[in-house]
């Protein structure tokens, strides 16, 4: 049927169409940068690509003049460590508490309202309390990610479990399964793909909280560097850092998507491509 909704691009054209918005943005950037440079040769707001490449090279492959460290790599290592800890612990808590709330009505009645309320607390607004309780070191940064991400994971999983067909749970019980067996053998495999998807969706917020935490009190990290050089408008450093963060987040998202399809292929059988 020749309708717009049935008009699919061929693979070559598809690639071209996908690249088009990127090319467009790059083009606009280069034009705007050149125009600002023409007016003020020292303009820092939109540095030309060559300067960003030079800055990125300097940060990645030349030791820092003062500390002797390779700035980009030490920042990345510190940030990824915080992010991995934060997201990892959040996932573990999200899975256990979500499973508890979803499977056990007693736990649900006790914790669901609390989680519902906690998920509405803006973490950034209670920072001073976090500082006093968790200090200014690594812990408070990990905790900020935890507070920001965990309630979402818990609620998402509990909702997924409540959407499972009750017949399944009843049937497992008539076959003699205990609560534990139902939770581990029936519920868990079915919510794992959803857990991975929820974590994928949380990568963005997790980065947001990480960078906010690093902006507030830190001496190393991707967010620290961005907010430090923002003081003198060094966009030639900030923009490559933003691109790098985007790439890292994209790779993490892609890795999780691949993992989900490999490990839980059954959940993606009906996926439309």
């Amino acid at each position: 049927m020749r309708r717009l909704m049935n008009l699919a691009p061929r693979p070559g054209i598809r690639l071209l169409l996908g690249l088009l918005p990127f090319v467009l943005i790059a083009f606009i950037y280069v034009a705007a940068s050149a125009e600002r440079r023409a007016v003020n040769p020292d303009d820092k707001l939109l540095p030309p690509v060559s300067e960003m490449v030079a800055a990125a090279n300097r940060l990645a492959f030349e030791p820092d003049r003062r500390s002797g460290e390779y700035v980009l790599w030490s920042d990345t290592a510190a940030s990824l460590r915080r992010l991995a800890l934060g997201l990892g612990i959040a996932t573990a808590i999200g899975l256990t508490v979500g499973l508890g709330i979803g499977v056990l009505p007693l736990v649900g009645a006790t914790l669901a309202p609390l989680v519902g309320v906690l998920s509405m607390v803006p973490p950034m607004a209670i920072l001073p309390i976090l500082f006093i309780v968790f200090g200014l070191g690594e812990l408070s940064k990990v905790v900020l990610i935890l507070i920001g991400v965990t309630p979402f994971l818990i609620r998402d999983l509990a909702l997924t479990i409540s959407a499972l067909p009750p017949e399944q749970l009843v049937k497992a019980q008539t076959l003699g399964a205990s609560t534990w067996q139902v939770a581990i053998r029936v519920v868990l495999p079915q919510i794992m793909p959803r857990l991975i998807e929820a974590v994928r969706l949380s990568i963005g917020p997790a980065f947001l909280f990480l960078i906010a935490a690093e902006a507030i009190a830190s001496d190393v990290g991707l967010g620290y560097r961005i907010f430090l050089v923002r003081r003198y408008l060094a966009m030639d450093i900030i923009l490559p850092y933003v691109a790098w963060i985007t790439l890292l987040a994209f790779l993490m998202d892609w890795a999780l998507a691949t993992l989900a399809r490999r490990a839980f292929g059954f959940a993606y059988v009906t996926e439309r491509r």
């Binding site: 920072l127 507030i216 009190a217 907010f227």
Partner: peptide
């Protein structure tokens, strides 16, 4: 010494922490 970059908006809260 060791310098720790801290936002001016949060420095009062930060100083209340025992790390600081």
């Amino acid at each position: 010494i060791k310098v720790v970059n801290t936002s001016d908006a949060d420095i009062v809260g930060a100083f209340k922490s025992k790390d600081s």
